[in-house]
Design a protein around this nucleic acid. Sequence first.
RNA 1: GGGCGCAUAGCUCAGCUGGUUCAGAGCACCUGCCUUACAAGCAGGGGGUCCUUGGUUCGAAUCCAUGUGCGCCCACCA
Length: 879
Amino acid sequence: MEITAKYNPVEVEDRLYAYWMENGFFNSDPDEREPYTIVIPPPNVTGILHMGHMLNNTIQDVLVRRARMLGKNACWVPGTDHASIATEAKVVAKLREQGISKDQLTRNEFLKHAWEWKEKHGGIILEQLKKLGASCDWRRTQFTMDEKLSEAVIDTFIYLYNKGLIYRGIRMVNWDTVSKTAVSDEEVIHKDVNSKLYYISYPIVGENASLTIATTRPETIMADAAICINPNDERYYSMKNKKVLIPLINKEIPVILDEYVSMDFGTGCLKVTPAHDVNDYALGIKYNLPVIDIIDNDGRLNEKAQILTGEDRFDARKKIVEMLDDAGLLVKTEDYKSSIGFSERTDTVIEPKLSMQWFLKMEEISKPALNYVLSGEIKLIPDKFKNTYKYWMEHVRDWCISRQLWWGQRIPAWYLPDGSFVVAKTADEAFTLAKKKYADIKISELRQDEDVVDTWFSSWLWPISVFDPSACGHPEIKGNADLNYYYPTNDLVTAPEILFFWVARMIIAGHEFRGKAPFSNVYLTGIVRDKSGRKMSKSLGNSPDPLKLIEQYGADGVRTGMLLCSSAGNDILYDNSQVEQGRNFCNKIWNAFRLVKSWNIEQIPQPDYATKAIAWFNSQFNRTLKEIYDNFDKYRISEALMDAYKLFWDDFCAYYLEIIKPAYGSPIDKSTYTETLKFFENLLKILHPFMPFITEEIWLILNNAQKEHKSIMLTHQPKLCDFDEKTVSVFEQVKDIIVNIRTLRQNKNISPKQSLELFVKGNFDLSFASILMKLANLSKVEITEMDIKNMSSFLTGTNEYYIPLGSRINISEELEKLTKELEYARGFLSAVNKKLTNEQFIKSAPSNIVESEYKKRLDAESKIKILEDNISRLQANNI
RNA sequence: GGGCGCAUAGCUCAGCUGGUUCAGAGCACCUGCCUUACAAGCAGGGGGUCCUUGGUUCGAAUCCAUGUGCGCCCACCA
């Protein structure tokens, strides 16, 4: 059988994924085993895979695959999010391309287009995840706008409304005057803009004096409802109970007092414009001021402004400044820098606009959610996010849950002709409720709210709704078998930027509807950035196409590359070289497999070096295994992978295989071969969660004959075994000797093919001599007390090693090397002595530290003696 | 403006409750090798005032304070 020298992932990956799917290896149903559950953070249904998804889902897959191999019933639930804002924007854009504007369509017509779009593009991202190797139970795929899940959202709304937690209120929305819609905060880009601060004087009624205010928006003065000053401001004590005139329109408005006004900004006088500023609105409520909205949806002044009607707000600003100046009411103009919001879509300045919205009261329901995290019942990884979480939850504001969109779950509120409303699941139910108010009302007189709920209002239910949507909004229901088995889930893997939008709210919903936190651990990944630290984004064009990467480097290579450089919570700076490293590692594994596969097995005695190597690697393996398990426990996934990487590459390939490898053409003894296969298989099992394809491929070939398990993922992770620390440390010394000899060869230009002799003085364990002889190409290893001429020497620990070099010896070079070492050893000794002569140190330091210093001194002294001896011997030789 | 966090090799980061894991890892770099598993490789090697300045201590990369430079979250002052 011919095996290629280079691993070819493309063919292997598609074949194996199909094999896994056919056999349903990813499927999970409740049984007697301990469950392990992850729900996927649902990507946008019409989105495509980006590097952030790759990282995030690789981590989830590692966790799930590992849990599966620890004998748990692992269930990874996939699905997609309807992402109302993003998806609706895409549909609107696509319609615009076809020359259709959203206003021309009815709600139902628009939704028809939206569903078509969803059918066409929906779920592509899930297919892409399969390329990555994601081991989701695909039978369980969910969509946040599926009928059942939408019903869950409506039930939840009604439940919270009936509990008195949902109310209507005024809020500033970000109004885009070009597309004439409200946009979300995320779609507003803040830019620092040089603007002006205008000082305008308002004549005081009945006096020949005026008050000067400072504003950046002079075009809104016609909407002013009051002038506000700080009651502690001495300059304006006399202004109490007075009135002023709005310039140009000469409208009388009161002067009010409130500590909200800061005395050191501008003149200390604030114009209060409730219709166009949210803080002013709050003041307006407090002092019962009228709301005069003078700006229309298209950004033009309306007739309520009395002047400049029909002008765009920015033209109006220029004109009104001139008019004020002409009237002698513009006191001065200052340059002023402020941050202004622009619409991401139309790049126009966002107009803050008051509107009626639905809110969820957060104060009470977020308290338990804070406690879950503070008490450690839910762990954030890394825990540095705990502080941020705490701060946010303690300063939480009510959640505006309505969105002025069509794509989503429509708010289940029906308005009566008198402006009041009822909340109900269906129009019929709403009609029943309405009849209680007005017996003669007709169903046709009811009008359902036009808005939909925020997307997060469906995704906060996700860990519950994917199992049993009917349990959402119904804490009294026990829930189905799936929910009771899989919920609460175990780990959530997501990005820190949605810790509040999503994670916190899931915790709230979990507690509210199930009385339990939805998960135990939240693993927060970083942002994937490019080499120069910029966030990867479509608009910058700095993101590689993940599917092309997979094609080029293999899914295992890409997974490994990304994981190696991503500790929790830290951003990852992506660079192709990392993925190359992953691919190279695949190739390394592949070639180790080729080597093992190429051997002829015979019943011959086991060489001593093989016996020793097996004993060592067994210890080394179990030692590393423990580290890997520890790292997994702490969710240090990249560290665990690096441990496995070095175990395979350095320990297994560079040492173990090199030692036991028979000479070309020679057979290998059966028991060494068997042990080696066992090691190899255990290594594959450890690597499988990280690199599912190549490990499965090799495992299947190696297990050709044995059909006990149809897949490596059905086997178990190796069990932790005791290991012999001594063996490991002795071997470290062996490695040290090998490296010293190899360095000597390099420096002296001695070919690796030419064998050398090694003489040892000191307490040397000869049992590893056979390994030394093989890896350092030595013809003999001997303990001696004799002095040998013309030799190079080195030290490991307190042992002295000598290699006869014959005529190749260069005495002055050797002398120089030894002198340097001697100097260093003397310096080291004097530092140790300094400590040991310090009475305070002896008194205060713990005894084991002091003892170790004494030992250091002894070692250093004997080392110095050896070095001095060797130097004098060389010098004698030299004569 | 309020809050949180970070600074260690050229890059990305480990470094637990101060002391032999104490200055580390991977990548990158340099040198020598096409040695019958692998040049996507093998062998060897050189890199750091642990951001500044103070303090605590017998002892500080590690604890405290100040400064500097970054990053994130929240709220946005007319």
